[in-house]
Amino acid sequence: MAWTLPTALFFSAIALVLLVLGVAQRHWPTVARRGFLPLATTRGDRFFISLLTAALIHLGWLAVTDLPVPGASALALFAGAVIMAKG
């Protein structure tokens, strides 16, 4: 599969978060709620939206600027945290 360390870390991180969400679901079942997003979301929905947002932030960053990519990653992490907490 031609693994590289960054891609291995990336997928491991996603797998780890999914595992944490699975454990959290078992102990503290999620309830759909409304935040600033225009629809009721569960914890898993907000994680999916966070991932999609992170991908789009990175693509937008790469499309319009030559600044270092960690800037986009920091922005994506911030956006993800806001969506998970208030979305």
């Binding site: 599969m1 031609a2 693994w3 590289t4 960054p6 891609t7 990336f10 997928f11």
Partner: peptide, 14 residues
């Protein structure tokens, strides 16, 4: 698995 493979390819010059 195919998606992971594609992501792996996308960051390399093969």
């Amino acid at each position: 698995v195919p998606l992971m493979t594609v992501v792996n390819y996308s960051v390399q010059d093969i």
